[in-house]
Nucleic acid binder design. Structure first.
Lengths: 167, 167
DNA sequence: GGTATAAGTTAGTTGAATTTAACTTTGTTA
DNA sequence: TAACAAAGTTAAATTCAACTAACTTATACC
């Protein structure tokens, strides 16, 4: 149906993530995870139940429906990609990267998500284990200074030989 | 005092942007820009006035206070950086990049913003007018295929000679 | 089995941000 | 200068998402 609010997405994602290392999910866990009071979690779950995204027996456990699982996984996937981009690519500290990912994950178009996936893939499938230009960027981010162009190129040359040997 | 809501940030930024090419800002312009009805703009402006971020004479023009201008420029700066990252770096279409920037700008930590600034600077101050690795990424994003490593390295070598000449 | 404690629920409130509908002010122009 | 249109305002209602306080159910253990 219509789209989910940011809050609903947070609840769905939380249920998924808690279930991943807990199996059992209760209202209490959900509230704790999202740092809200239990009545907030109850009312959110009620509204997700109405939309057939969550199953909840009175005073019992929580479960995602198939539909809810699909939605939750979509959010969680965005989270993981954003985290990878922020941490693995940009080099942001994991706690901050996670916080940013949590907040941004609700607001990114599919176009941008797909391009980020490509970027991560581009770095990960690089024949060098860690691309020279990326190391150069980290150096630049830390020190504000570029490594000398000739040095950059030399690095690339070294990599060229390595890569050629592989082939 | 405390922090601004996403909505407040949007209103402040809108007032700034409209004033940049219009000079004069009215409730009507604000409402149109943000795609809300005028009473929404009125009530938002009222609350911004209370916080000394906006000056507004009854039935008259709108103006940012010094404090409001500082806040608005901070948001707008985030927007521009995000846009640059999305469009100039990732290669996202301008309309989509702008839409994403609008939504994300409220949710990014300073740490991440600073790192994005560094990234943009790193690309812009590259001795090659357009870094080879970035062209390679675009090629990869379009086709799903990497240019051959030896070709990448050759490109880098060419750049090395160019760069050395400059020095 | 009966009671204390933990978990969950319900009802009612608050605050933010929007809307519609009805009203007022401003300013242009016939 | 009267009246009309455009802009702005106010009031009242709605929706969302949180909260507190008071209540109910489940469970655990003596």
């Amino acid at each position: 149906m219509g789209n989910l609010t940011q809050s609903s997405e947070d609840y769905l994602e939380a249920i998924l993530v808690i279930s991943l290392d807990n199996n059992i999910v209760r209202i209490k866990d959900l509230a704790k995870y999202l740092k809200v009071k239990t009545p907030s979690a109850v009312s959110a779950v009620k509204s997700l139940s109405k939309k057939n995204l969550v199953r909840h027996e009175h005073y019992g456990y929580l479960e995602l429906t198939k539909k809810g699982e699909v939605a939750a996984k979509a959010v969680y996937k965005r989270h993981k990609i954003l985290f990878k981009f922020l941490h693995d690519f940009l080099g942001i500290d994991p706690e901050i990267a996670d916080k940013d990912a949590c907040r941004i994950e609700h607001h990114v178009t599919p176009e941008t998500m797909n391009r980020l996936i490509k970027l991560i893939e581009f770095v990960e499938t690089c024949p060098e284990k860690h691309p020279t230009w990326l190391s150069n960027f980290y150096h630049f981010a830390r020190t504000g200074k570029r490594l000398k162009p000739c040095k950059e190129a030399k690095e690339s040359r070294k990599e060229m030989f390595k890569a050629n040997k592989k082939i």
